[in-house]
């Protein structure tokens, strides 16, 4: 009798440890969010997003940024002002209308860079990505900073 309790106790203890370790392991190694597969939180014109920030950056940050960095996933539409590459060799597409103070800078990924090949300056496109920071005038830089979107890909309209 005593042996049986001991046996079952031991089995429970061991399986408890295994399950616990597995949970910790998966928590620790949880994958990054797949931005392109995730549901879209907002869909709007690039100029509208910029204007929200230029009107009230605090409320825009409150609306679009999340505390743990998993900020809103947005589809922005606008006209391509430039296509460049950053130091990480990712393509950067700037959506900005001619007379706008700031635009939306969209950084692609190694998986999506190829889709920018078909894009050119002046094209009107829709791009999906995650917002990292907003637009605004910086008096030290003496220039307007763009809204930054990353993990981007162009979306068929």
């Amino acid at each position: 009798m005593k042996k049986r309790i001991l046996k079952w106790g031991l089995i429970l203890l061991v399986s408890g440890i295994i399950i616990g370790a597995a949970i910790i392991y998966f928590m620790f190694n949880q994958p990054h969010r797949d931005i392109q597969a995730a549901t879209v939180d907002y869909k709007l014109e690039a100029s509208a997003l910029v204007n929200e920030y230029l009107t009230n950056a605090t409320s825009a940050n409150d609306k679009y940024l999340e505390a743990e960095g998993e900020s809103k996933i947005i589809i922005v539409s606008g006209t391509i002002a430039s296509i460049s590459e950053d130091l990480n060799k990712q393509k950067v597409v700037l959506l900005k209308s001619k007379n706008a103070k700031a635009g939306v800078s969209c950084t692609f990924t190694s998986e999506t860079n190829a889709t920018t090949k078909n894009l050119k300056v002046g094209d009107k496109v829709s791009i999906k990505g995650v917002i990292r920071s907003g637009a605004g005038y910086d008096e030290d830089l003496e220039l307007y900073e763009d809204v930054i979107l990353e993990k981007c890909n162009s979306i068929k309209n």
Partner: peptide, 28 residues
């Protein structure tokens, strides 16, 4: 230099969450 704090990428997603959270850099 102007640095958008949420653009820091970590190897592990959990570390990135911790870094952004209120307990650490509070990037919101």
């Amino acid at each position: 230099y102007s640095v958008p704090m949420q653009s820091f990428e970590f190897e592990k997603a959990l570390m990135q969450k911790h870094y952004n959270s209120k307990k650490f850099l509070d990037t919101k």
